[in-house]
Write a protein that binds this DNA or RNA. Structure first.
Length: 345
DNA sequence: AATTCGGGGGA
DNA sequence: TCCCCAGAATT
């Protein structure tokens, strides 16, 4: 049996029972693909359930408030995916008569849909012969053919896409694409793959040359930056607090947070920042205490956020205050969400 | 071509 | 700790 036949055969015997494998509805396939970008199946699954329940069709998603979409997305990360998801839902309803385009080329025009996702939808929903190349496919191909070109280099991206075209089963691209990804996720996994039970072991060049452990090769990533976040949790006597929306560039666009004082290092004397704090929260009369004496380091892939929460008590009424009853309706970074649960106002 | 977008899980 | 995850958009 050749490579693609063996992969597909393995798939039919070993595939997991996942909800998006029960449909060819482009809306649901699109939804699942966006959610699973850089995200494990186990992490994305509950979000897929929530979204399909709350927004059964693209029309339901299109008419939702963006903050509602972000709230349901809360905790999944890479929030531009959620904003682009909502934008494209409206785009489909307004400019495509509610129907997804049915070719790879046309799908690529949708915001948030790149090469991988366009290939996935085109092949799974419309049986187009277009190979998907995700992290799993890079790994399977690099190992099986023993290729050490860095997968995140320009040459690597081009080489592996070409190779994927050569191995795809033209008679069943939908199942082949899902098969090679599933194979990568379950059998040819990143750490300690069990090659002794692999159906492709006899023809795998990486295994033959004892290079499975170093493949695939990836260019090194940039180092993380450190930032110091001081959140100002205003507590008024009227059961209110302040939240602000993150706008502009950077992390967590469109999500809410407590007013933020960002510093270049750990704050030791909060009194030194009295004037800045007054300006940020627009209150002069307050007392301030530190909630967590130990700074928590919230680790993102490219930033380490050294965060602490300051409780700011005031008798003033808040101009743009929100009631504490409403606080859980706002989409917030998981960091803020955890604090809200812990502090419990 | 390189960087920037989260958060969680496994070794 | 470090790496990776059904990548895309921006710089």
């Amino acid at each position: 049996m050749n490579f693609s036949k063996e992969i597909t055969h393995w798939y039919f015997q070993n595939k997991r029972d996942l909800p998006w494998r029960k449909t060819k509805d482009p809306y649901r396939i699109w939804l699942s693909e966006i959610m699973l970008q850089q995200t494990r199946v186990a992490q994305g699954l509950p979000y897929y359930q929530k979204f399909t329940e709350e927004f059964p069709t693209v029309y339901d998603l299109a008419k939702a408030e963006e903050s509602h979409v972000l709230k349901l997305w809360q905790g999944l990360g890479y929030y531009s995916r959620a904003r682009n998801l909502h934008f494209t839902a409206k785009d489909i309803v307004n400019n495509y008569n509610g129907e997804f385009p049915n070719t790879y080329k046309a799908l690529l025009k949708l915001k948030g849909v790149g090469d991988y996702t366009a290939s996935a939808i085109a092949s799974i929903c419309f049986d187009e012969i277009e190979p998907v190349v995700d992290g799993n496919v890079y790994r399977v191909l690099a190992r099986y053919f023993d290729i050490d070109i860095p997968i995140n280099s320009t040459e690597g991206i081009k080489t592996f896409k070409k190779l994927a075209f050569e191995v795809i089963d033209p008679k069943d691209p939908a199942n082949f694409n899902q098969a090679i990804m599933e194979f990568g996720a379950v059998q040819c996994k990143p750490q300690s793959p069990n090659c002794t039970i692999c159906p492709l072991a006899s023809s795998c060049l990486g295994l033959k040359n004892k290079r499975v452990g170093i493949l695939p090769v990836k260019l090194k990533k940039t180092k993380v930056k450190n930032r110091w976040f001081n959140y100002l949790v205003v507590v008024s006597t009227q059961e209110q607090t302040l939240l602000e929306e993150r706008k502009g560039k950077g992390i967590w666009q469109g999500l809410y947070q407590f007013p933020l004082l960002e510093t270049t290092k750990e704050v030791e004397n909060i009194e030194k920042y009295q004037a800045e704090i007054e300006e940020i929260i627009n209150i002069k009369d307050f007392s301030i205490t530190q909630f967590n004496k130990k700074i928590k380091v919230h680790k993102l892939s490219h930033q380490h956020l050294h965060t602490t929460f300051w409780i700011v008590e005031t008798a003033n009424s808040l101009k743009n205050g929100i009631s504490l009853q409403e606080i859980r309706k706002y989409p917030v970074p998981i960091l803020i969400g955890n604090f809200i649960e812990e502090f419990n106002f």
